[in-house]
């Protein structure tokens, strides 16, 4: 049923796209139709696959590192008043900076390779993961804490047995958000300076007026992002308490 609906929506979108191309009569280097893009995708499949692999690697490493950093930071903040006083304002401030503005600096510091893109992905997901998990850790239902206190539980054991598990659904929503943001981070990094990756391929195709290839790369990125989102959603189902 869900898949049926997705299929119908996809077919509808493709028809709409084709209709716009036919009705406006735009040339294919401005707006190529779905068939043209599919053809470009097929004839460039080896190149697209290679660049997809690069972007996927950046995104996955970024996701893992960003999530780990976010989890550690949230626990630090939740357990230490000093950390809250010192670190929280900094976090909020860095969040107020547009991450795009940092991309050139990161490329300057870390070079054109994989790591500047990983760093972008990490930066863009670090805050949502940290703040979602931190909020969850600070909103432990009062009754659980009372119960634990009457059971003479120590701080650490309340953290591990009660606060962290009670906050896992919040962490799950943070991670799901991160799965949407991480590809954006990596592609921005690739736009600023790279020789590989889907973002790079899009720029390259665009520069050579290969609009059909640029669309093919963009749609590949979209499909990858959706699949990543679904995978993370699935992986975090237990965490979110959905069975």
């Amino acid at each position: 049923m869900k898949y049926g609906a997705a299929l119908i929506a996809t077919v509808f979108a493709l028809l709409l796209w084709q209709a716009v191309v036919l009705l406006t009569g735009l040339p294919r280097f401005i707006l190529p139709g779905p068939a043209v893009v599919a053809e470009a995708w097929w004839s460039n499949r080896a190149v697209i696959a290679e660049h997809t692999l690069v972007t996927a690697l950046e995104v996955l490493i970024g996701l893992l590192l960003g999530a780990a950093l976010g989890v550690v930071t949230a626990i630090q903040l939740a357990t230490s008043r000093l950390a809250r006083v010192l670190v929280q304002p900094m976090l909020v401030f860095t969040q107020a900076l547009p991450v795009f503005a940092l991309a050139p600096i990161l490329t300057l510091w870390m070079g054109y390779g994989l790591w500047s893109k990983v760093a972008m992905a990490v930066l863009i997901i670090y805050f949502p993961v940290t703040s979602a998990f931190f909020d969850g850790l600070m909103r432990t239902p009062r009754g659980y804490l009372d119960l634990a206190q009457t059971m003479q539980a120590g701080k650490r054991s309340v953290l591990w047995h009660i606060r962290v598990p009670a906050a896992l659904p919040s962490l799950a929503s943070g991670l799901r958000l991160a799965a949407v943001y991480a590809p954006i981070g990596a592609v921005i990094g690739e736009w600023v300076g790279a020789s590989r990756g889907l973002g790079y391929l899009m720029l390259l195709a665009n520069g050579r007026a290969k609009t059909d290839l640029m669309f093919a790369a963009m749609l590949t990125l979209g499909v990858f992002s959706v699949l990543l989102h679904l995978a993370v959603r699935r992986a975090t189902m237990r965490m979110a308490g959905e069975h």
Binding site: G154, S157, V158, H161, I162, P165, A166, L168, G241
Partner: peptide, 17 residues
């Protein structure tokens, strides 16, 4: 605790200590 089984809920005190 919604994430823990009946058995683990009953044994919570010992686990916490």
């Amino acid at each position: 605790l919604p994430w823990a089984s009946v058995e683990r809920n009953i044994g919570l005190g010992a686990r916490l200590r």
